[in-house]
Amino acid sequence: MSVSNYVFVAILVSALVTWIPRITPFVFTKYFKLPKIVAKLLKFLPITIISALLLQCLLQERTGGVPTFKLLECIAFFPALFIAIRTKDLMKTVITGVFVIALLRVFM
């Protein structure tokens, strides 16, 4: 197998491995009804994922020490949170966060 064929096969296998876990839940939930408790828990899943990603962005990990907060990201968090609560629009929230962090990096 030549290098280009190997790379092509590696890309296809990688795409398949990434695609299967993302599509499989949709296929299963289309044909099977979930128990009420599972459906209720799944309603909280996006909130927990967003919270975990957000906390990961706001904290600076230190090897062998306690994580500390990143100052600029924490300052930019509050205007973005305000826009998120006020508008409930993800695009406006992201644009606000990016704009505020850009301004903070220019002036600080």
Results as ranks from 00 to 15, higher is better:
residue 2 S to F: 06
residue 67 P to Q: 01
residue 74 C to W: 11
residue 30 K to M: 10
residue 25 P to Y: 05
residue 58 L to I: 04
residue 46 P to V: 04
residue 97 G to N: 01
residue 106 V to G: 10
residue 53 L to K: 07
residue 13 V to E: 06
residue 34 L to S: 11
residue 99 F to C: 05
residue 20 I to F: 10
residue 11 I to M: 14
residue 21 P to I: 01
residue 107 F to L: 12
residue 90 L to M: 09
residue 94 V to R: 00
residue 39 A to C: 05
residue 40 K to G: 08
residue 79 P to R: 10
residue 70 K to T: 15
residue 108 M to W: 14
residue 37 I to A: 15
residue 60 Q to M: 14
residue 82 F to K: 00
residue 22 R to A: 12
residue 96 T to V: 04
residue 80 A to D: 07
residue 78 F to G: 08
residue 81 L to W: 04
residue 77 F to H: 03
residue 26 F to M: 12
residue 50 I to G: 03
residue 68 T to K: 10
residue 77 F to D: 09
residue 84 A to T: 05
residue 75 I to T: 02
residue 95 I to N: 00
residue 96 T to D: 01
residue 38 V to R: 07
residue 1 M to E: 11
residue 46 P to E: 04
residue 7 V to R: 06
residue 40 K to E: 15
residue 37 I to M: 10
residue 31 Y to A: 01
residue 47 I to R: 03
residue 6 Y to P: 05
residue 20 I to D: 02
residue 11 I to P: 08
residue 62 R to W: 01
residue 11 I to N: 12
residue 53 L to A: 14
residue 9 V to R: 15
residue 2 S to I: 11
residue 53 L to Y: 10
residue 5 N to T: 08
residue 78 F to Y: 09
residue 39 A to V: 00
residue 46 P to F: 01
residue 23 I to C: 05
residue 8 F to W: 10
residue 88 K to V: 02
residue 70 K to Y: 15
residue 84 A to K: 06
residue 49 I to D: 12
residue 105 R to T: 15
residue 46 P to K: 08
residue 43 K to W: 11
residue 37 I to N: 15
residue 76 A to V: 04
residue 91 M to W: 01
residue 77 F to R: 06
residue 107 F to G: 07
residue 104 L to S: 04
residue 102 A to G: 08
residue 14 S to V: 09
residue 46 P to C: 03
residue 108 M to R: 13
residue 106 V to L: 13
residue 57 C to F: 13
residue 104 L to N: 00
residue 63 T to D: 10
residue 82 F to M: 07
residue 94 V to P: 05
residue 106 V to R: 06
residue 14 S to T: 13
residue 38 V to M: 14
residue 100 V to N: 01
residue 31 Y to W: 05
residue 86 R to E: 11
residue 11 I to C: 13
residue 26 F to A: 13
residue 59 L to H: 03
residue 98 V to Y: 08
residue 25 P to E: 00
residue 85 I to V: 01
residue 83 I to P: 04
residue 1 M to W: 11
residue 71 L to C: 00
residue 8 F to S: 10
residue 38 V to N: 05
residue 68 T to V: 13
residue 85 I to A: 05
residue 15 A to C: 12
residue 52 A to C: 07
residue 103 L to Q: 06
residue 64 G to L: 02
residue 97 G to D: 03
residue 44 F to R: 05
residue 92 K to Y: 03
residue 2 S to N: 15
residue 39 A to M: 11
residue 82 F to A: 07
residue 42 L to C: 11
residue 75 I to W: 10
residue 60 Q to D: 14
residue 4 S to H: 11
residue 98 V to S: 09
residue 64 G to D: 04
residue 6 Y to W: 09
residue 93 T to W: 04
residue 42 L to T: 04
residue 54 L to F: 07
residue 41 L to Q: 14
residue 61 E to R: 09
residue 91 M to A: 09
residue 67 P to A: 06
residue 44 F to C: 09
residue 33 K to M: 07
residue 73 E to H: 01
residue 92 K to C: 00
residue 83 I to E: 00
residue 73 E to P: 07
residue 41 L to T: 12
residue 87 T to D: 03
residue 67 P to L: 02
residue 56 Q to P: 06
residue 108 M to G: 15
residue 37 I to C: 02
residue 96 T to Q: 05
residue 72 L to C: 07
residue 50 I to N: 03
residue 60 Q to F: 11
